[in-house]
């Protein structure tokens, strides 16, 4: 538990002249729940996607459990087995049932036997509370249910880190709660999580670190209490308070 799970140094992402973020350093320790917040378009999602190499940074390096994943010879697919991702618009495989969505990574990537895979998949669906929907197709599930299946799909791979890219932004308000609850449960079980979200209630309650990003750099980071009540930058206070108005009050007592 001494070495951080994920380390990033000097990450820079640009499209031509357009710099998304510049020289970002980040460390994620085991069991951390880190929430990244900030105005839209500041590169939070892009940063997240660098961690599982869906996007390649122009500069900088990333290490997973001490291994550099941005190195020349690194196998991307193998990296993605160990880092799970949940997307804003779920991206479930439309032609597969909930069970098969969770199962396919196990049979095709992890090469498990059908029986073992099935058992594990059902376990994960159970974990997100959807065992009874195993035979349903994405088109037959609500948004919240689809997202929970997406979480189960990512969890089934037994990742070291889970990345959440605005997991509730595409959901109707009533459905946000069920997904956040699953995420809270995960955090309590000790999963290492990196979450981009506007849900301040979740951040205040569950995160052990909040990172505020704006205009392509990290303005400030710290514990939820520090960030909310004793921020170093005025902008941090302004943003956190505004977001809390819109997306949920803190549930921590003063």
């Amino acid at each position: 538990m001494n070495q951080p799970i994920l380390v990033a140094k000097g990450l820079t992402k640009q499209y031509g002249k357009n710099v998304i973020f510049h020289d970002i350093d980040l460390e994620v320790a085991e069991r951390d729940t880190i929430v990244i917040i900030g105005p839209s378009g500041t590169g939070k999602s892009t940063l997240l996607r660098c961690f599982n190499l869906l996007t390649r940074p122009e500069q900088g390096q990333i290490w997973l459990d001490g291994e550099e994943i941005t190195a020349k010879g690194a196998k991307e697919d193998h990296v993605r087995e160990r880092i799970g991702m949940v997307f804003q618009n779920f991206l479930l495989f439309n032609h597969l049932t909930a069970l098969n969505n969770v199962l396919i990574g196990l049979t095709q990537v992890k090469r498990m036997t059908k029986e073992a895979a099935r058992a594990k998949a059902m376990e994960e669906l159970q974990r997100v509370g959807l065992a009874d929907r195993a035979g349903h197709y994405p088109g037959q599930l609500s948004g919240g249910q689809q997202q929970r299946v997406a979480i189960a799909r990512a969890l089934a791979m037994d990742p070291r880190v889970m990345l959440f890219d605005e997991p509730t932004s595409a959901l109707d308000p009533e459905l946000i709660g069920e997904v956040l609850n699953v995420m809270k449960q995960l955090a309590h079980e000790g999963m290492t999580m990196l979450v981009v979200t506007h849900e301040m209630g979740f951040a205040m309650e569950v995160a052990n670190r909040i990172i505020f990003m704006e205009k392509g750099s990290i303005v400030e980071q710290g514990s939820p209490e520090d960030m909310y009540y004793h921020p170093q930058h005025e902008r941090t206070r302004e943003f956190l308070h505004k977001i809390t108005e819109l997306h949920g009050k803190t549930q921590r007592k003063e």
């Binding site: 697919d77 495989f93 990574g105 095709q108």
Partner: peptide
Amino acid sequence: AGQMVAARAIGMSRLKAVQHIILPQAVR
């Protein structure tokens, strides 16, 4: 494109993604 992204995100290679995720949907 989202389907391919999701398939890669669970560690599938491009080939497997095309075979198991893209083509079955494309056929329909």
